[in-house]
Design a protein around this nucleic acid. Structure first.
Lengths: 262, 262
DNA sequence: TACATACGTCTCTTGTAAGAGACTATCGCT
DNA sequence: AGCGATAGTCTCTTACAAGAGACGTATGTA
């Protein structure tokens, strides 16, 4: 069920049998924990990443000793550990854009009451890097780190600005073009959307991921023409034209503020 | 014996020559980046972790491909990557104490204007897990993730409550007992401090890490008698008795609020 | 121009870690 | 009790990754 399109972490499905490097196993373990989002038994983990049990025990022990993983409450489950949190904070500290972006997103959602997000391209996938829930009761907000097919989102259209058509085709799989409700986008329409978004400097999509929201996005530049991230607002689909317009204005302003002068 | 007390990452010192497991190299690389706190060239990295250059190149490429590391601006330096940030956020999400603790620390420093920190034991070392700078102009605040010898801090005395004397002796090296200004603590005094801190339910140290501040700390419990973390305030050493007293009261209150009922 | 350093890639060897699988608990179920 | 899963440890083999080091390039500097 989770196979979707993503061939797991490793690009190479080397069928069966052959030995796998420990480091790669570890990378798969981390990625697996990231997708499951909860502590898991070592046996299940081994199944989950399709690794031998004995190997998995060994690797997990290394990782637990190093603090990258921690044994969870009941004692025989593992999840991410403090070390990863500390490294993550180091990343934030070393990354102006992210640090300021988180701030702006928090401000924006407080000021507007809407869910606000900072998004980036992460190894060819669209990723919500930070989100702030807004005040509406029903919108529970998507998890940070969630990865969504690029064509489902307004931000996806902005993030691909400046890419060659071939590159875009590489990044977008057939499955990505199928929306959650089963509708199917045309690749050419998507590519046209990208060009349009680049020209207008923002992007709005309605009812793509779900039927009740629309998504407003504006680009954050790290250099001339280089879109490094997007800020976006998730609002009810029946938000009025004027309010939508003024939110877009605000959003573009804030996104521009984040951009490196170029 | 099960708690790898002292081996740490840098337990390398297996003289020279012998091959090292790739995963261990990686763990050393991450730890090294954590201590240097900035992007570094791959060659220097190899020197830093005392690994062969060719190996380091290979490992770094894997890590960059996986997104755990990123090439920094100028192109030939590496630092932590987005993936680590995302994993770190996963950790926060899965960890009530940390999530609420960060919040309380931020509140506390805003309310009091003092630098406030959340601290935990991390593989036998005292670690600042989150800190919020306060409003005083001079206090630039210590970095999150900073590790400090246990005997230098008030929190260290609280975190070791409930440990056997032998365990404490294991965790504290000779060097740890030497303060930054050269003074030397006696291990027995330190152990007595721990007992006293446990009994009184808070701890204050003056002029240990530097001559201008004192440190107030209160324990956060994860179960009966089990100290999981501490909250602490760093205040000027000449803070009045009364203000110190009322800050301690506030601190203990907030720390108790964080504790799991037990 | 020569010399010294550092970067990045590549090849080949061999020490060793990944993996298969046996083994022993310890559950939960009937 | 008997049966089937699952947890955790341990041993042994061999496929393969770690490492040494050569090579080509790009700097800086005498």
């Amino acid at each position: 069920m989770q196979d979707g399109n993503a061939p797991a972490v490793s690009a190479d499905e080397k069928i069966s049998g052959s030995r796998e490097k420990g480091l790669n196993r570890v990378l798969e373990i981390l990625e697996f924990l990231h997708t499951t989002q909860r502590a898991i038994g070592i046996g299940d983990l081994a199944k989950g990443v399709n690794a031998p049990r004995s190997t998995t025990y060994t690797l997990v022990r290394s990782l637990v000793d190093a603090g990258l993983l921690e044994m969870a409450g009941d004692g025989n489950r593992v999840y991410f550990g403090k070390k990863l949190y500390l490294y993550g904070m180091d990343y934030v500290r070393g990354n102006d854009l992210l640090r300021r972006g988180r701030q702006e997103v928090d401000n924006l959602s407080r000021e507007t009451g809407e869910t606000s997000e900072l998004c980036m391209l992460q190894s060819g996938r669209y990723t919500i890097v930070h989100s702030s829930p807004g005040t509406r009761p029903f919108r529970i907000s998507s998890a940070t780190g969630l990865q969504i097919p690029l064509p489902w989102t307004a931000s996806g259209r902005l993030l691909l600005a400046g890419f060659q058509q071939a590159q875009i085709e590489d990044m977008v799989s057939e499955d990505d073009l199928v929306l959650p409700d089963g509708r199917r986008l045309l690749l050419n329409d998507f590519i046209a959307d990208i060009a349009k978004a680049e020209a207008t400097g923002y992007c709005v999509t309605s009812g793509l991921v779900d039927a009740y929201t629309k998504c407003l996005a504006a680009p954050v530049f790290s250099g001339p023409g280089k879109v490094e991230a997007t800020m976006c607002l998730v609002v009810p689909i029946d938000t009025s034209e004027e309010r939508t317009g003024s939110l877009i204005g605000l959003l573009r302003d804030r996104a521009a503020r984040l951009s490196i002068a170029g």
